[in-house]
Structure formats: C-alpha cells, structure tokens
Design a protein around this nucleic acid. Structure first.
Length: 938
RNA sequence: GCGCCAGUAGCUCAGCUGGCUAGAGCACACCCCUGAUAAGGGUGAGGUCGAUGGUUCGAGUCCAUUCUGGCGCACCA
C-alpha cells in the first residue's frame, strides 16, 4: 500500500492579517491616536452633515479625582448610544461636560491652603480679594481634573467632541445659567425666605454638611413644664376635670433655643397621659411616662387620663419666660425613644421645626444673630448674650420660675465647624428659593404641577419603573433652596440697596449675564455694581424699585447651588451652541432622579414650559460580587486603570454591553475574565470568516450582497443568510430600545452557535477542499463576507476598536471610516423548513456520541441514516453530510431512528479525509474522492 | 422610618397577561479533532425559583408578611 500523500499544500487553507490575540492594552492606544490624528469626530460629522440629528446631552460629572468604574459604566453606555445612532445613519454630535463649581473642590482647596499656611494670609484680605484668591485656586484645580478625566474617558474609546467640551465655569455657560435664572425670576418662581442652616459663629458663615465634623459635646439636658393656657380645654381633651392647670413637659438639649419656641409637637396617633407627678399635673406621652418619671426622680406618679396626640393638637400653652402663647401641633417625626413625646419646636433653629413652622404658618423666628448673640427681640436678660452662656442662664431662669422639672448633663455627638473646630448652631438665615408650588406668571401653574404632568404623560422612562420613582420624588420635594454661602460658584447677582432691601430683577440678571458672558463670573468679585449693571436700564424695567440708585448698591455674596448650574445645561449647552433642543435622551445613574434629571426639568419647565429631554434612561449602581456597595474603605473598589491595563477598554466595553443595567450591577475581576473569554470567542469567529476571504474576488459591496442573496434557500448559505437577516433586525431593534444586553446576547449567540458551531463547521470542507473558484466555494465566501460586513457594523457600538480592526482587514486600510457606514439592511427571508434540518442535526450529534462506544470516534468515519417519513429533509439532502460533519447521510422514509454506520472499511480520501464512496486511486497515485480529484486536477 | 428596585443552577441572566418533567450562556466533568490550534466540536452533571403564609384545580409567575442588598429621602428635638 502506497504511503499517504500530503495534499495540504493543495488546500485553500485560511489566511488573515487579523490576529487571534487582540493585544488590546497596546493596540487600543494606537487606534486612539489614529482617531485623534485623523479627526474622526469631524469626519463622522461631515459624513452625517445632512442626516437627521439625534440630540443627546451629557450630564456633567464632577471635576474631581480620577474616574471610577461608575464613570466607566456611564460613559460607555452613552458611547454605545452615540455609536449605535451613528450606525443607523443619524447625526449625533456629543459634547462632553464637567461640573466645576461647588463645595468638594472648595473644600479640598481650602484644606490645601490651611496646610500650606496660606489660609491665614487670606483672612487679611478684603472679601472680594479673598474670594478671588480662593476662586483662582479652585478654577485651577477643576481644570487639572478635567484634563485628566478627559484623557481617561477618551481611553475608554468614547467618541465625543473632546476638543470642545463644556464646563460649568465657562463664561458663556455661566451666562446661559444666569439667563435661565432670569427666566425663572420673570415667571415669579424665585423668592427669598428665612431657613435654618448650620451656622459657624466663629466664621460667621453657613456651612454645608460636608464642612461639619461631629464631636462629642456636653450639654444640659432639661425637662421643662410649659403651662397650659386654658384649663377647660385640657379637661375637654382628656374628658376629666383638673384641679389645677396642667403643663406640657418637653425635653431639650439646647436650652438656648427655648426663646425661639413657637410650638410643641406631638405624634397624632400616640397616646398621651395626663398625670399627677409629685403634686403637679403634667402631660407626657404615655409610652414615655415610666422613663421620664425615672429620670426626673418623681416618686408619686398617678395617671389620671389618656388621650391621643391628635386630641391635644390646637391646645395652647404659655411660654415659660416670653410673653406669648403657642399651640400644640402634630408631627409624625415625633418618636417615643428620647424625651417626653412632646417636642420643643423652634422653626428658626431646626429643620423639622422649620418645616412644621411653614406648614403651621408659624414665624421662622430666630432671635440669634450671626455672632451668636441674642437680639433685641429676646427677653432682656438674654440680649447680647452668646448662646453658649445663654444655656446656663435659661436653665437658672427656669429653675427660679419653677418651670424646670429636671436638669442633667448630657453627652452627645454634636456638629462642629471643620475649620475652627467650634460647635455650630442651627440658625435661620435668608436664602433664595425656587418655589415648586407657586403658579408661574405665564404657565399659570406650579412647577410641581407641570413636572407631575410631564412625568405622567410626556417623558419616556427606561426602565419603566423610573416613572414611579421620579413621580414620588416630585410629589415629596420641598422648595428648592438654591443659595449657598461660599466663594467657589456662580454668584446669585443680587444687590442690597441703601435702605437694606434686596434688588434683583429679571432684567438686572440679564444685564449681569451679559457682563459675565464677557468677563466670567469673576466679574462679580472684581467689578463695581455700576460696571456690572452697565447694560441695565432701570427705566425700562417694570420691576425696578423706585428711585434706584445704582451707585449706592452693594453686592450680595450668595452663590448658586451647583445643581442649578448643572440643571441649566440644556440652555447653556444645547440651546446656546445650537445643538438642537430638547435632548432625545438623558442617561445617568438612578441617583439622578433626585439630582440632574429633576433639577434640569424644573428650570426648563419654568422657562420653556417643557422638559429638556424626551427619554430618561437610568442605570443602577455598581456593587461588588457580594452585592455590597463599592467603597475605598471596604477595599472592594476596582481601579479603572488596572482594568484597562489588564483587560483593555474593549473587554470592559463588551462587559458593559452585556450587563443588565437596571438595578444593581455586580462587578468583579472575574466577570471581566468571563467577558474576555466571550470577547475572544466573537473575535475568533470573525477571524475565521476573514481568513477564508483572502482569495475572494474583489466584489463591491452591492455585488457581494446581491451574490449572497442569490443563495438557494435550501443551501447552508441560504440558511445563514436567513439567520443573519434575523440577527440584524433583532439587534437594530434592541439598540433602538437601548436594550444593549439583548444585542450583546444575540451577537454572541450568533457567533457561538450559528456561526462557529454550525455554519463554519459545515462550510469548512468546501472552503478548504473545493477548487478555489468553484461556484459552491465562491457562494460561501460571498456569504461569509456579508456576514462579516453585518457583524462589524453591529459590533461597532460595543467594540469600536475591534470592529474597525476587522473592517480594515476586510476592506483594506484605505477603506472609508467604519463609522461613516450604515447597517446593510438585509431582507433574506428565513426558511421555516430548516427547523427540521436542525432538529435532525441535533439528533445526529447525540447518535454520534453513542457511536463512540462502537469505536467510531471521528464523525468522518461514519455514515448516518436519517428517518424522513414525510420528506421534510429531502430538499436539503445535498447539504446534510456537511451539516452533520459526517461522510455520508442517507435519507430513509421507513426508518424511525437515527442510525450510525461504520465506514472505516471504506477508502478514505487523502485530501478531505472523507469516506464518501467515490474514493479511489488517481493518476498521481493518491487516494482521492471525485471532488478532490477534480480540485487537484488529476 | 419612607419611596423605588433586585433576590431563579457555582457565575451572569431568560422565564409575557399563572398551566407540559423551570431555560440559555459561561464555568465544570468526560470525549472528539489537530487543515480556525495559546483555536474548534460533541455529550453530560448542576436549581426545595430568598423565607413564610394565602388566593387558585394549578404559582418562579398573583396577594400579604418577612429577610438580605442597592439607590434616593427623612431622622438623631
């Protein structure tokens, strides 16, 4: 017997420049550099110059620190939107932005200044100069992080106009924000009102939560009797007759706030007891009675009657040392944990108290001045005294007047000013608000009503539950306090007139906006009121105060809540830059229902009457593999740079694309390994397709599509064309619904099953062994080429680098940019008869597995007999052997089971390794089947 | 404490308006191929569907309660 000839050189074996190893960590930066050098953003814009635009607006991340995995998720999702929209042939000019102002930066900068010893020097400067010095530092700090974050975001291979980003500290942005504010003023939504804030006496400033440190502090804890004003009403409430006038007993740890007491709060649904306690009549919560009696050391306690808190509401009491009577009010925040169940309420000194005060129509009374001393409205013996000294005075006064039930020292955690380390107080100050329940001048309805309507009827939510979430937040939100007492921000351009009233009108704000547009918001600190208001004409401003004297105005120094700035981006960016309005989509984490979504919606509703977005897409938060939140302290936070280095941006993007982004998203290095595996699977499948196209004719796109579509429905090629069409339709529909995971799974499944397991395996023999230019081989090459064309486009939004790599391998380096292309739009009908064929194929696989026990390890050593009683398989007879990977398939109308027969006794083709029954010795001495003999030409 | 969301094989997830022995991919085990080769293919073993109670002829699927976790909000007088 002659030895087996080596026919390998005669085969059409695959070849490609597209490497199996992606080497992403090195290859991606090169792609990035190429994009930057060739101005991809410009090229794509040019290609879509006349296309229908898709307006998509970036919510600004805060310009602080390094980007974290949350940014990665958010930015990649956004980029997938941008690129998928482009592939649909629409234009999408995406402008990235940053939020620059605000406390986190000012805090960091101030800490730095304190550490470097420069802070003390600042205190010697005038207010304007000091603020400017801080602002300069802050601006530099923000600029530095914008630069580094921008580079990190670009490294994620995101496509955006990084050359022209927006910052909330840009002069034109600031001007756009002020114009929104002017619009709201004009509609009457803006007002000024007292509100309690954390106040540092040492620095005479309001503090934000982040500027507080909690330290233990010892304060007097006192139980005080507030005498009822009308005994008969008490009798009515409890249904008994009292022998003397009872008192309401309250508890407080801040005796100095008692002068501002304007109410006592009770819980409406808890029982309160009227008790005789050591000879006096007192009212406390029934549940607290035991505790209170024990603390105050009462010996004789007798409950006379009980009544629900709601029965007490409206009763009046006499203030123990101020000449007034006040009411009992209901509040459901009253708890039965500490105190007496009756809560001392001073609307000027507490947030809850404030809210209660507003609801009950109480004065927001604050007799404490900025320096911590009592003003002239306080009782004479307290005037001019600092609150800390007042504590003792109040206790002694109460003791002397017999109102003090008990006093003890109490250690508790108390907020302190982080800079001066002195205790802060809660003190009502005047703040600016945007009212959500005031009817606007033009709209005639409130922002809340408009927002409610938009949430119910206009906005599309992805996922749908965003609607109920936003709805709940709209319903419960209070007026928006937009003023902050800080230096690093956009000034609220209000002035004080000589007589102390506040001057700020829609027209004056517009005038300031004009000045800020030219000079930036620093102008507020460097220019005089007269210069700032240069373009303001009081005569034509109907809201101008009478006899306005611009020369005598003084500037006020509140700045805007940064959310107001970010919430004005629809005007400062979309409208001012002419990018189109409104935005089709806002896409942020679910925390932005409270944040950017809502705070963009309110100003836009106020000014334009409509929401600045049509659809709200939210994604959940990243948690670790055990479902715990990511944090530096837990040490479970993943570093983006490490991910990029170890896996590459493409694997990270591939992971993002496959994630179920509604709800929590678990993230772990292991998941990136998994994503890397499936990425490689997709990559290798595409590589197989590409590698069989090396000698394909130079078809144009139109030609190859036409050729591929000419595949017979009963051919493997025809089957794939049907599957490919279905994939394209499905993926594009899912992209449109932002259901990227569905796209991801569809593509993966197509590569893994449809191509790798079925099509590629089936078509291998003809690609390798048919004559290079056989019609059958060319047909499959055309279909493989079309599959590659479709896949690169479908993958492009997820894997811009890999898709482009494949695109260049397919079309050459002079091909037009992938992102100037659009989807192929196949319409090859799926032939339903294939379900029978695929079922038969699955049955064969099982049967072959069983045949292994008979020694038939290699399917090419087998022939298979398939039952085909109804002739369903007959039309596909020519393809069945290739499809099943066996040498022969016989259809038998009478068979009932798949039968595997051993062909090992039959001659084996030296070239194709098949035993198809035509194998015999040929003129060159080799054992070849008819097809292979023909291919080799012997 | 309140609002919203999630809890299905080791992992990531499908399971629509309640109805055959609860599905897929990955991982795993075993096997094949060695002409996609630091690739490719086949077969298989994995689940009391967070827990409890209820509605129903029948529930992963509806209702109630509860536990765990996430986001947001409130609270510490």
């Amino acid at each position: 017997m002659s030895e087996t000839r080596d026919y390998k050189p005669t085969l059409n074996l695959p070849k490609t420049s597209f490497p199996m190893k992606a080497n992403l960590a090195q290859a991606e930066p090169a792609t990035l550099a190429r994009w930057q050098a060739s101005d991809v953003v410009g090229a794509v814009a040019a290609a879509r110059a006349s296309a229908e635009p898709f307006v998509f607006h970036d919510g600004p991340p805060y310009a602080n620190g390094s980007i974290h995995v949350g940014h990665l998720l958010n930015k990649v999702l956004k980029d997938i939107v941008v690129r998928s929209v482009l592939m649909e042939g629409r234009a999408c000019h995406y402008v990235p932005g940053w939020d620059c102002h605000g406390l986190p930066i000012e805090h960091r900068v101030m800490t730095g200044l304190v550490e470097s010893g420069k802070a003390a020097k600042l205190d010697t400067l005038s207010d304007d100069h000091r603020r400017m010095a801080i602002r300069r530092e802050c601006a530099a700090y923000a600029a530095k992080f914008i630069k580094s974050q921008s580079a990190q975001m670009q490294r994620l291979l995101t496509l955006a106009d990084y050359a022209n980003p927006y910052f909330t500290m840009q002069p034109e942005y600031e001007a756009g924000t002020l114009e929104v504010f002017a619009g709201l003023l004009n509609e009457g939504y803006v007002f000024r009102q007292l509100k309690p804030v954390h106040w540092s006496i040492a620095n005479q400033t309001a503090l934000a939560e982040a500027e507080l440190e909690y330290e233990d502090r010892v304060d007097p804890s006192i139980y005080v009797d507030f005498e009822a004003a009308d005994r008969s009403k008490i009798d009515g409430a409890f249904g008994i007759e009292c022998e003397c006038t009872p008192s309401f007993m309250i508890w407080t740890t801040t005796p100095w706030t008692l002068p501002a007491n304007l109410a006592i709060a009770v819980h409406p649904s808890h029982p309160y007891a009227l008790v005789e306690m050591d000879g006096t009549l007192t009212i406390v919560a029934a549940e607290m009675l035991g505790k209170v009696a024990a603390i105050v050391g009462a010996t004789g306690v007798k409950t006379l009657a009980t009544a629900l808190g709601s029965a007490l509401v409206g009763l009046e009491y006499r203030h123990p040392f101020c000449d007034r009577t006040s009411r009992i009010v209901a509040a459901d925040y009253v708890t039965m944990e500490d105190g007496t169940g009756l809560v001392h309420t001073a609307p000027g000194h507490g947030d809850d108290d404030y809210r209660t005060g507003l609801r009950e129509g109480l004065e927001i009374y604050c007799p404490v001045q900025g320096d911590g001393t009592f003003d002239a409205t306080a009782p004479e013996w307290l005037r001019g005294k600092v609150v800390w000294d007042a504590n003792t005075l109040v206790v002694e006064h109460l003791r002397a007047s017999g109102h003090l039930v008990h006093a003890l020292q109490f250690t508790h955690s108390y907020p302190h000013d982080w800079r001066s380390r002195t205790p802060v107080i809660f003190r009502a100050t005047e703040q600016w608000f945007i009212g959500v329940d005031r009817a606007g001048a033009r709209a005639g309805q409130s922002l809340r009503a408009m927002a409610r309507d938009a949430v119910n009827n206009t906005i599309k939510f992805v996922p749908a539950w965003g609607q109920s979430r936003l709805k709940g937040m709209i319903e419960s939100r209070p007026d928006w306090c937009i003023s902050r007492q800080r230096a690093w921000g956009l000034p609220i351009p209000a002035f004080r007139t000589a007589d102390g009233t506040v001057f700020m009108t829609s027209a004056s704000v517009r005038a300031i906006a004009q000045c800020v547009r030219a000079n930036g918001s620093d102008a507020w600190f460097t220019l005089t009121p007269a210069v700032l208001l240069a373009s303001y004409d009081a005569a034509s401003d109907p809201h101008a105060p009478k006899d306005l004297c611009i020369e005598s105005l003084t500037k006020m120094y509140d700045i805007f809540d940064v959310w107001f700035e970010a919430g004005s981006s629809w005007n400062s960016v979309l409208r001012q830059r002419g990018l189109g309005y409104p935005s089709e989509l806002y896409l942020e984490g679910s925390d932005q229902h409270r944040g950017w979504f809502q705070l963009s919606m309110l100003p836009a509703l106020g000014v334009t009457g409509a929401t600045p977005f049509r659809t709200l897409l939210t994604h959940g938060f990243l948690v670790d593999k055990d479902g715990r939140k990511m944090s530096k302290s837990l040490g479970n936070a993943l570093d983006v740079d490490v991910l990029l280095k170890d896996f590459g941006a493409e694997v990270a993007r591939w992971w993002v694309s496959g994630v179920a982004y509604d709800g929590d998203i678990r993230i772990d290095l292991d998941y990136f390994k998994v994503a890397g595996e499936s990425y490689r699977k997709v990559r290798n499948t595409i590589r197989f397709l590409l590698s069989n196209l090396y000698d394909a004719p130079a078809w144009t796109q139109e030609q190859v599509i036409e050729f591929a579509c000419a595949s017979k429905p009963e051919s493997i090629d025809g089957w794939l064309m049907g599957e490919l069409t279905a994939l394209e339709v499905e993926a594009r529909a899912a992209y449109k619904e932002y259901d990227f995971r569905r796209v991801h799974l569809a593509i993966f499944n197509f590569c893994n099953e449809t191509l790798s397991s079925v099509y590629c395996a089936a078509v291998k023999d003809r690609l390798y062994c048919d004559a290079a230019d056989s019609p059958r081989r060319r047909q499959s090459q055309a279909v493989a080429r079309v599959a590659t064309e479709v896949l690169t486009r479908l993958l492009a939004p997820f894997l811009p680098h890999t898709a482009e790599e494949a695109w260049i391998a397919l079309r050459g380096s002079r091909a037009p940019l992938l992102f100037t292309q659009t989807h192929i739009g196949l319409t090859f009908a799926r032939d339903v008869r294939w379900v029978h064929v695929m079922a038969a194929r699955a049955a064969v696989s099982k049967a072959l597995e069983g045949a292994k026990s008979l020694g038939i390890d290699n399917p090419l050593d087998a022939a298979v007999t398939l039952p085909d009683a109804n002739g369903a398989l007959a039309p596909f007879a020519a393809e069945l052997a290739d499809l099943c990977g066996v040498s022969q398939v016989i259809l038998d109308a009478n068979a009932t089971l798949v039968l595997v027969s051993d062909l090992r006794a039959l001659a084996r083709c030296d070239r194709s390794w098949r035993r198809d029954g035509t194998v015999r010795q040929r003129s060159d001495g080799g054992m070849l089947s008819d097809r292979d003999a023909l291919s080799v030409g012997v």
